[in-house]
Design a protein around this nucleic acid. Structure first.
Lengths: 336, 336
DNA sequence: GTGAAAGCGCTAACAA
DNA sequence: TTGTTAGCGCTTTCAC
C-alpha cells in the first residue's frame, strides 16, 4: 500500500514557490538562517510546515560534498563492549547534526575491508574503526582517502590517522601485577584468540609473569565464540586440569561473570577457592556477588573522543590528528 | 594531514575512459554485470582496480531513487535488549547490499519524531521503528511517506504499515499466571514506567491477578533509568516494605539479575525466600545461579523478520505489509 | 539580502 | 551490447 506512494514528496522548488522566493533562499534559510531576512525566513518556515517538506540530504551531500555522516565499523553490534563507544560517538555527533552509519566486521579483517569500502561509498565525513589491526590494502586506501579516520580501543606506533584508546598490553600487565601483589601465585588467563586486543592483554599477562619470574609457565585457555556458556565450560575444564590455580584473569567481565557463576554452581567460594578478575568494568561487575575485581576502561569516552577528534578536524579547529591515550584503572573489589 | 587530501578520488568517468567505454557501461558493469560483454567487463574491472575507484552511492541514490539504506530507530544503542534485533536486521540486509543508518530516540516520542524525520532526509528505502507508540504527526507523515515502515516489539490494531512483535500484555499475563500456578501468591511487579512495552507487561500482570481474584492488590515498583544499581535499590526497598512477598516479576532479565544479586548479598535463598522471574531470556539468564525463570522473546527474529518484510516489499514480492506475531515462551528455570 | 546559472556523480529512458 | 541525452534535488559561485 504505502509503497505505492501517496502525494509526491515535496521538494525545495515547491517550498520556494510557496514562499515566493528562489530555491537558493530556501537553502540559505535551512543552512544559515541568519543570512536571511526575518520575515522571509518566517514565510519559508511556514511553507516548509505547510508542505511537510523534508530536505533531501542525498542531494545536499552530492552538491556540497559534505554528507554529515560518520561511518563506524565495530566487530559486532550485539556486544555490550562496543555499545558504549557507539553511544559516545552518537552523543557527540548527534548535537552537531551528524548521523551514524554502521557496519559489522565480525572480527574479520577481510570483511572489515569490504565493509569499510562500501561505507566509504556513502562519502562519510569521517570514519571510526575498531582496533588498529587492518588489512594493509585498507590502510593504504584510507590514507589516500583524505578523510579523518580514527582507530579506537588500542594504541599503535603506526596509525592511519588519529587514535583513541589505551594499552591493552599494559592493562593485562597491570592486573597481573596486582594479582601477584595481592598474593596470588598460580594465575591463569582466559580469553579469545581472535581479537588482537585480547592477544595484547594476554601478552601483557605473560610478560608480567616472566618479569617477576614466577614459578611455572603461564596457563592460558581460549574461549572463542564469546558465548557465556562456552566461557563457563572453558573455565571449568581449566580448573579441572589445573586445580592448583588460585586466580584466573579473564579478558572481559562477561567471561568473568560466567566463571563466577560456574564457581557458584560448584559451591566454590570466591576468592578463597579461586580469585577472579575481569576487564571492562561493565555495569554488572559492581553488582555481582562477590563484586568483580576488574580493569576499568574508558568505553564511552573512546567513542566520544573519537567523534570529537573527527569533528575538530571537520571544523578546522584541528589540522592534524593525534594519539589519545585514555588509560585504564585496576578496580579492586571482592572477587580477588 | 589526510584531510588536506591526496590524489582526488576517481569517478566513473575516469574509469570509463581508462576502460575505453562510456560511463553507462561502467554503471551497468557495477549494477548488472550480466548485461555487459565478458571482455568489456574485465577491462572495466581492471580499470576500477587500477584507479581504486569506489562508486559514489550518494550520486547513485540521487539518480536512481534507491538508497539501499534501511533506517533504524531504537530507544538506545547501549542496551542488550535491542542489540539482537539490530543484529537481525543487519544480518538480513547485509547480504543484499543494504546498509544501516541508526538513531536513538532515548525513549522520547518527541526525539523519535525529530530523529526519524532527519533520517528520512537520507531517503532510506525502508524504516524500522521500535514500538507502536509514536507522535501522531509522525504516524501521519510516515503513512504519507510511501516507504515500507515496520514497527517492532509490540503488536497493534492500528499499525502505520507492517508490524513484527509479540504481545507484551500477554507475556506479562502468562508469566503471572505461571507464577500463580507454581503456588506463589504475593507477587510484585518491577519495571520502568516510561516504556510502553513495560507498561503493557504490567497491565498483563495486573489483569491476571484481577482475573484470578488474588487477595491483596497488585504491588508494583518503578525502576527508572534502567541502571542495575537503581534496580537493586528498588527491589530492596520493595522487599523491605512488603516482606510478605513470595515472588517478584521484573520486566527484564537485567533487572531480575540485579534483584538476584541483592538477594545473594542479603543471604536470601532464591526461590525459597522470594522467587524471581524476568523477561527476555538474555544469555545470562541461563547462567545465573539459580538460573532465571523468564519469558523468552524473539529478540533476534524481530529484527530479521522486520528486515525481511521490508525487503519483500522492495523486491516486489510482497505488495502489502502485514502483522507478524512472533510469540513468546515462558521458560521455567530454578529461580521460580 | 536575494537570485540565476552551472554542475555535483550517477542512472533512467531511450536510441543505435 | 553499448552509447546519448537529460536530469535527480540540492548548493556553489557569482552577480545584483
Amino acid at each position: 500500500m504505502s509503497i505505492a506512494g501517496k502525494r509526491a514528496r515535496s521538494d525545495m522548488k515547491q517550498v520556494a514557490a510557496h514562499a515566493g522566493v528562489s530555491t537558493m533562499t530556501v537553502s540559505r534559510a535551512l543552512r544559515s538562517p541568519n543570512k536571511v531576512a526575518a520575515d522571509t525566513l518566517k514565510r519559508i518556515e511556514q511553507a516548509i510546515e505547510a508542505l511537510g517538506y523534508v530536505p533531501d540530504l542525498v542531494a545536499s551531500s552530492l552538491a556540497s560534498k559534505r554528507s554529515h555522516i560518520i561511518a563506524v565499523v565495530v566487530p559486532t553490534v550485539s556486544s555490550s563492549i562496543f555499545d558504549d563507544s557507539v553511544q559516545g560517538i552518537a552523543d557527540r555527533i548527534g548535537s552537531e547534526g551528524y548521523q551514524l552509519i554502521m557496519g559489522e566486521s565480525r572480527y574479520s579483517a577481510e570483511r572489515e575491508e569490504a565493509l569499510t569500502m562500501a561505507l566509504l561509498g556513502r562519502r562519510p565525513d569521517g570514519l571510526v574503526l575498531t582496533g588498529t589491526t587492518h588489512a594493509p590494502r585498507l590502510r593504504d586506501r584510507l590514507k589516500e582517502a583524505g578523510l579523518p579516520v580514527v582507530e579506537t580501543w588500542e594504541l599503535t606506533d603506526d596509525p592511519i590517522d588519529g587514535v583513541v584508546g589505551f594499552s591493552n598490553f599494559d592493562a593485562g600487565y597491570a592486573m597481573t601485577a596486582k594479582l601477584l601483589g595481592w598474593g596470588y601465585r598460580r594465575i591463569a588467563f582466559v580469553g579469545g584468540s581472535q581479537e588482537p586486543r585480547t592477544a595484547a592483554r594476554r601478552a601483557g599477562y605473560e610478560a608480567c609473569l616472566t618479569d617477576r619470574d614466577i614459578a611455572g609457565a603461564p596457563v592460558t585457555a581460549f574461549s572463542e565464540g564469546l558465548s557465556l556458556r562456552a566461557a563457563a565450560t572453558t573455565f571449568e575444564s581449566l580448573m579441572d586440569q589445573n586445580p592448583e590455580l588460585d586466580a584466573v584473569f579473564l579478558s572481559s567481565d562477561s567471561l568473568a561473570a560466567s566463571a563466577l557463576f560456574a564457581c557458584q554452581r560448584r559451591g566454590w567460594p570466591v576468592p578463597d577457592r579461586v580469585a577472579l578478575a575481569g576487564l571492562g568494568d561493565f555495569e554488572i561487575a559492581a553488582e555481582l556477588v562477590p563484586a568483580l575485581t576488574t580493569v576499568r576502561v574508558p568505553r564511552y569516552d573512546i567513542g566520544r573522543q573519537a567523534a570529537d577528534m573527527i569533528l575538530a578536524r571537520l571544523n578546522g579547529s584541528a589540522t592534524t590528528s593525534q594519539t589519545l591515550d585514555l588509560g585504564y584503572e585496576v578496580v579492586r573489589r571482592d572477587s580477588a
